[in-house]
Design a protein around this nucleic acid. Structure first.
Length: 798
DNA sequence: AATGGTCAGCTG
DNA sequence: AGCTGACCATTC
């Protein structure tokens, strides 16, 4: 008999293994590994992925596959084995790995219906529920409280519960029509139409001269009622044709030409092209200061790959995946480019995925998950801004796009380019060790000078009586730009209005009732919001503790900066960009366009403006508070601060006008701020490496984070202790186990959280040991409510 | 995850 | 006896 082993869509430890199903003979030639199928699982139907098919001589009792969901595999051999690797590497469930590689539209949608079987007579109560219908939804029955009655009837056999599985996303189709008559017949028919059939006559006239051609109904101008009448008379034929939703509808791109490379660019691209030509895998770390022309290197390398008949993947952090960025690829490669970003609807993403899968494009530009693009002849993978932490996925499967890229490059024997002006310490250290090949672009194209940077000590400002959030230095410079008609970018890494509120009389700070974090104040709805569990409540006007009316809004958000700025300079035109103003689709693009069109003097925003914007008239960049990030409980805080400041400073003076940067800080002496001002990457690298070495952090050690949570703090800490005690003897003496300690956010959603951090260099057994821990708690922990999660190479230590 | 089976405890 | 809710094993 023919057997398929199937991983089912039930993401828990107990079902995290393949189940065997019989392949019914009618699907025998059809069912292949990598296909989605619907299978019976227990009493219901679920989606599953076929891992492999085989023939067994002996027949055994297996349930048959209900039906395939695809006509061709959605995952090829390579992606299936990548899923194996991902599962082992990140300790996730196989189903999570498989699903991570496909667009959300391919996730299953489940529904439950209750149907009358007709075998027995229904009770009156049930009859009332159905009315004249044959079938109702489960939800409907549940709402009316009739489930008990339904259960009885099901037992009796008069009702049936049917489970259905559907793919979430649908292919979009358009209605096509054709006139099947010959031209002569058509002319005759039109002539002999009854006089009152004006519309039908008109419709047929449309087909004169093009009879036999398929035309989209929309383009014919024929109403659907008229079309229906003609189809009934067989004067027209119709069919549904698959089509793509077009996110770029109405936009055309004029192709541009490769730019002439500078000497340094040539020196850098040469080894990349060599590896492409030789079909060899190699990871390049392209370290190029902002404005040094990294993108042109990417574009010309991709050209080479396309020339060879291969494909390329380009990863870009979500926040810099702007039209400005993707247009450069569209302009160079035209229709050969697919773009995957979060702004697309589920359906649009699905369509882009299908274009890739059918090899209708050669290049994919997208955020993290685009690393799974289903190409089968990859010639190059590029990760731009490789230091960005958003390349690490924080849910299962907890993978890092860089690792996936390198895995795929070794499968396809092609190079990887990691590009950044401020490489992650991990990557730079690997480049220094020779694991990656380091390529450096140290000059800006056209030798534009780097902007001059002023560091302003805000403590000093305060001492001299300036209590505003703008230093005198920055304020003067802003006024100067206004006069000259040049543009300013102000950067702040906070969102909302104020980050928290506090009673000035008793010091009370409202905290989330479910989590141990202070709540964030959102002014537009005068609400307090918890960023961890989503809890919302109205912001109090009097202190709930002491009844005082003196409530102060602490921390400075973009809204507040805007207000203060308008107070000081009433006529200034500001565009504010943060999560609040860019929430709607395309808002990001619209705001940037307005700024580019010089409809505003100042662009004020959070993280999202740190990247990629490149306008000629920006001559001033102000960082309002450089150290908000520096004091987070994160060993990467200094690195992130350095990267951000360097990145932001790069926004100024990219064109003919020289740029200036003002960095305001309360810790001007910190090396990450000093060295960012000097744009001195290597010096920062050396210094930070010392710190990491002393602390035993990456890149000197690998990390694994175990988090244990439970409703009772005692249970969480007790079990965390047990876990540590169990793991410790399994590891080599060189491994360090920190904790368990309460997590920095010690409670989320009413669950207390304890964590321990493992620092290690080489622990071949670690994966197995951690998997055992997870399995143990999957069995035992389910009943006592304990949850254990493991993050290998964590980026978020909270 | 979701389901059906088992079983203790309660109602009448 | 009949029903409900808690617990728990099972899912090819």
């Amino acid at each position: 008999m023919n057997i398929a082993s199937v991983v089912v869509d039930v993401a828990v430890r107990q079902t995290d293994r393949p189940f065997d199903y019989e392949i019914p003979s009618r699907w025998e030639d059809m069912i292949q590994p990598g296909m989605r199928v619907i299978v019976p699982f227990g009493p219901r139907h679920v989606q599953g992925f076929v891992l492999e098919t085989r023939e067994e001589a002996e027949s055994r009792k297996l349930k048959p596959i209900v039906e395939p969901m695809d006509i061709a595999p959605v995952l090829n051999k390579e992606l299936l084995s990548l899923a194996d690797w991902l599962t082992a590497e990140s300790l996730c469930f196989k189903i999570s790995a498989l699903q991570a590689m496909l667009p959300a539209a391919m996730k299953a949608k489940y529904s439950k219906h209750i149907r009358i079987t007709g075998d027995h007579t229904l009770s009156q109560e049930a009859q009332a529920l159905f009315g004249s219908r044959e079938e109702i939804t489960w939800e409907e029955a549940a709402e009316t409280g009739a489930l008990a009655e339904v259960r009885r009837e099901v037992k009796k056999g008069s009702l049936d519960v049917v489970y259905s599985v559907k793919s979430k996303g649908q292919k979009k189709t358009i209605r096509m029509v054709q006139c099947p008559l010959s031209e002569e017949e058509l002319a005759q028919t039109i002539h002999s139409m009854p006089k009152n059939a004006v519309k039908q006559k008109e419709a047929l006239q449309f087909f004169q001269g093009i009879a036999g051609n398929w035309v989209p109904l929309k383009e014919t101008g024929i109403s659907s009622a008229v079309a229906k009448a003609l189809i009934e008379k067989s004067l027209l034929l119709e069919k549904q044709e698959e089509t793509y939703r077009d996110p770029l509808a109405g936009r055309t791109f004029e192709l541009d030409q490769p730019l002439e490379l500078t000497q340094t660019q040539k020196a850098v691209i040469e080894p990349i092209l060599a590896k492409i030509k030789e079909d060899q895998s190699e990871t390049f770390l392209l370290h190029g200061v902002t404005g040094s022309g990294k993108t042109e290197i990417y574009l010309q390398s991709i050209s080479e790959v396309i020339k060879k008949g291969q494909e390329a993947i380009v990863l870009v952090p979500e926040i810099s995946l702007t039209p400005q960025m993707t247009d450069r690829f569209k302009q160079r490669f035209g229709d050969d480019v697919a773009v995957l970003h979060s702004g697309l609807s589920t359906g649009e993403k699905y369509d882009e995925w299908r274009k890739i899968s059918r090899k209708e494009v050669k290049v994919v530009v997208g955020a993290r998950s685009a690393v799974f693009a289903p190409f089968e002849n990859i010639g190059l993978i590029i990760i731009d801004e490789e230091h960005e932490t958003s390349y690490k996925q924080e849910e299962n499967p907890r993978y890092h796009a860089r690792d996936v890229a390198i895995w795929r490059s070794s499968y396809y024997q092609c190079p990887v380019i990691l590009g950044s002006a401020t490489p992650s310490l991990e990557s730079f250290a690997r480049a220094k060790k020779g694991v990656y090949k380091l390529l450096t672009l140290s000059e800006r194209v056209n030798d534009r000078p780097l902007p001059s940077v002023d560091i302003v000590d805000m403590r000093e400002e305060l001492r001299e009586g300036n209590r505003s959030m703008f230093s005198r230095n920055l304020f003067e410079k802003i006024k100067d730009r206004l006069q000259k008609g040049e543009q300013t970018v102000l950067f702040l890494n906070k969102r909302g209005y104020s980050s928290f509120i506090m009673c000035r009389d008793c010091g009370f700070v409202p905290e989330c009732p479910n989590c141990d974090v202070s709540m964030t104040y959102h002014r537009h709805r005068h609400q307090l919001k918890c960023h961890y569990c989503g809890h919302e409540e109205l912001s109090p006007n009097v202190c709930p503790e002491c009844g005082s009316e003196h409530i102060r809004h602490f921390g400075t958000g973009t809204q507040k900066v805007e207000e203060e700025l308008l107070k000081l300079l009433p006529e200034v035109r500001i565009i504010r960009m943060d999560v609040d103003t860019t929430g709607t689709k395309g808002a990001h693009e619209r705001l940037l366009k307005r700024f580019a069109d010089k409809e505003a003097d100042i662009l004020l925003g959070t993280q999202m403006i740190a990247k990629g914007l490149d306008f000629p008239d920006i001559t001033l960049v102000g960082v309002l508070s450089a150290d908000t990030m520096l004091h987070l409980p994160d060993f990467r805080a200094a690195e992130k601060t350095f990267q951000l400041l360097t990145q932001v400073s790069g926004r100024a003076g990219r064109h003919t006008l020289p740029g200036e940067v003002v960095i305001q800080t309360y810790t001007p002496e910190h090396y990450s701020i000093q060295l960012a001002a000097d744009q001195h990457y290597e010096a920062f690298y050396e210094q930070e490496m010392q710190v990491r070495k002393a602390g035993g952090y990456p890149p000197f050690y690998f990390l694994a984070l175990i988090t244990v949570s439970h409703e009772e703090a005692i249970t969480a800490s007790g079990e965390a202790n047990k876990i540590v005690a169990n793991i410790k003897p399994e590891l080599s003496p060189a491994a360090v186990m920190l904790g368990p300690v309460a997590s920095p956010i010690s409670r989320i959603n009413n669950r207390y959280r304890w964590q321990c951090l493992i620092k290690y260099k080489r622990e071949p057994k670690l994966g197995t040991v951690l998997k055992q821990v997870l399995e143990h708690y999957a069995k035992q922990g389910k009943s006592n409510g304990l949850m254990v999660s493991v993050d290998i190479h964590p980026y978020v230590l909270m």
